[in-house]
């Protein structure tokens, strides 16, 4: 109490330890930063690893355009776990351990039919786990066997949008429901590339002035 700004904007402005005041718009900035600097942990077990982790990092596709090229082999330095490939019973505990070792906030992307549901290995099979979500919570599913690199980028943009809208400083444990990020049907590779470029430019920029003007503080003399 005492500070006018906190009374004016309950829930948007709050007191933080040490006496400073933090504005809600910081959420947008932090989420924007998080969304655009995802560090993936490459957990490639089989075929999907070639498409999802190697081809995407290489020329022609180039994951760096999405700020996610810093693939780390260590879970301690990563915040996006890309499950690329089949998970078998013997691998399951390792996957769980890797997930638990990652620092929060952490996100999981299940790429390919095997990581979603067991894929072609569902029937008459004694060793394949039917989907990574039997072991760890998954945020984004990317269908395909294996998915195209473009599908991976589409999923990356889906995840970025999710991070920007759902996760925040105030509620960092709140995840939105997992989404299936399937590429729209009937479009060519060139279309996808074009659309991705558009999405990238449109969605990855935060206009701080516009955000401020649209907020509840507009016209109250704070900015």
């Amino acid at each position: 109490m005492g500070l006018k700004i906190i009374d004016d904007f309950p829930g948007v402005a709050m007191k933080v330890p040490g006496g400073s005041v933090m504005l809600g718009v910081m959420d947008a900035v932090i989420n924007w930063a998080r969304a655009n600097s995802l560090w993936p942990l490459s957990f490639g077990t089989s075929c999907c690893a070639i498409e999802m982790l190697m081809a995407t990092g290489a020329p022609h596709q180039d994951m760096a355009r999405f700020g996610a090229e810093v693939a780390r082999p260590s879970p301690r330095q990563a915040d996006l776990l890309v499950v690329a490939g089949t998970i078998v019973k013997r691998m399951a505990p390792t996957l769980r351990t890797l997930y638990e070792q990652m620092a929060e906030p952490r996100y999981v992307m299940a790429t390919g039919a095997c990581a979603i549901s067991g894929g072609p290995f569902i029937y008459n099979n004694y060793s394949v786990v039917r989907g990574a979500d039997e072991i760890i919570p998954v945020d984004v599913y990317v269908p395909g066997c294996p998915p195209r690199p473009e599908a991976f980028f589409y999923a990356l943009l889906t995840l970025q949008r999710m991070i920007r809208s759902g996760d925040s400083l105030k509620s960092r444990h709140v995840h939105k429901r997992p989404v299936m990020s399937a590429l729209p049907a009937g479009i060519t590779v060139a279309d996808i590339q074009e659309e991705l470029r558009d999405l990238l430019e449109r969605d990855s920029a935060v206009d701080v002035e516009k955000e401020a003007a649209a907020g509840p503080w507009a016209g109250k003399g704070y900015c």
Binding site: T45, S46, C47, G85, T86, V88, R90, M91, T94, P120, F121, Y123, N124, N125, Y126, S127, V128
Partner: peptide
Amino acid sequence: LGYIHRGIEKMGESLSTRQFIHLTDR
């Protein structure tokens, strides 16, 4: 070994060879 043993040979006993071929891709 065994961290990616997917039991393809067992599955092959209930698939026709033409169906089995698509598992060999993997």
